[in-house]
Design a protein around this nucleic acid. Structure first.
Lengths: 120, 120
DNA sequence: AATCTTGTGCTACTTTTACAGCACAATGCT
DNA sequence: AGCATTGTGCTGTAAAAGTAGCACAAGATT
């Protein structure tokens, strides 16, 4: 799970969000404590807590004060088709030596410009 | 082109980067002036300029001082396979009502976790 | 040559974000 | 009941990013 080196709350948010929705973190599975996450990513507790808050607002996790934080029931795993397409895109990009950043930018660009428009 | 409402330099960077690499902005095509972009996105000139600088550092655009900014020759358009896979992913996500943010998070999660690892 | 356009480079100010460090409340565990 | 764990909520401080406004230099345009 810990591979990159995020710094901001948004990046930590995105990291867990991705882990949950891709199925790497299963339903009901426990997340590291806020303090642990803060240590892992070398950020202040407040920053890690902020990320968790954001995930909770979106219903991805459930926190009980002394019992820790767990993946919300049903929040895990986006539909298989999405995950498979994401895998396919990642594979294609790496094969063509396209950066993750560029790949995301391309994805943003074609978002809402695909099914409706078919140029050329 | 102007559809979303970015605010930071990074978002503007990503927007143009995506437009270029997806082929929406063709080779040699001219970008709006820095001032125009600043107006379009309601940001300071310095912020828009910063985004352009970043794109130039990556060789995606070429700026000549009074002639404006143009897409660098050869910078446009990532390989077709990548674009097609991006389109497919976008389509799948929208069909399943998955957010763009979540889709990006999933993509990040499976990045470098596909071809090499095949769990289950 | 004169003028307009455009990217760049300032300065000073404001806002946002993250930091450190601690204290508290809720809860599980023994 | 007592204690450790864990999320939360402070405080004040520091760093990063954005803003506004202007001035300048390099070219293009006429």
């Amino acid at each position: 799970m810990t591979g990159t080196t995020p710094s901001s709350a948004d990046e930590i948010d995105a990291l867990f969000r991705g882990a949950i929705r891709s199925g790497q973190l299963g339903d009901g599975e426990r997340l590291p404590t806020v303090r642990q996450t803060a240590r892992d990513f070398c950020v202040a507790q407040a920053t890690a807590a902020k990320a968790y808050k954001s995930l909770e607002r979106d219903g991805l996790i459930v926190t009980r004060t002394a019992a820790g934080t767990r993946v919300a029931p049903g929040a895990s795993r986006a539909p298989q088709s999405v995950i498979e397409h994401a895998r396919a895109l990642a594979e294609a990009s790496e094969e063509e030596l396209i950066t993750l950043g560029d790949t995301i930018a391309i994805l943003r660009a074609v978002w809402r410009t695909d099914a409706t428009q078919m140029p050329t």
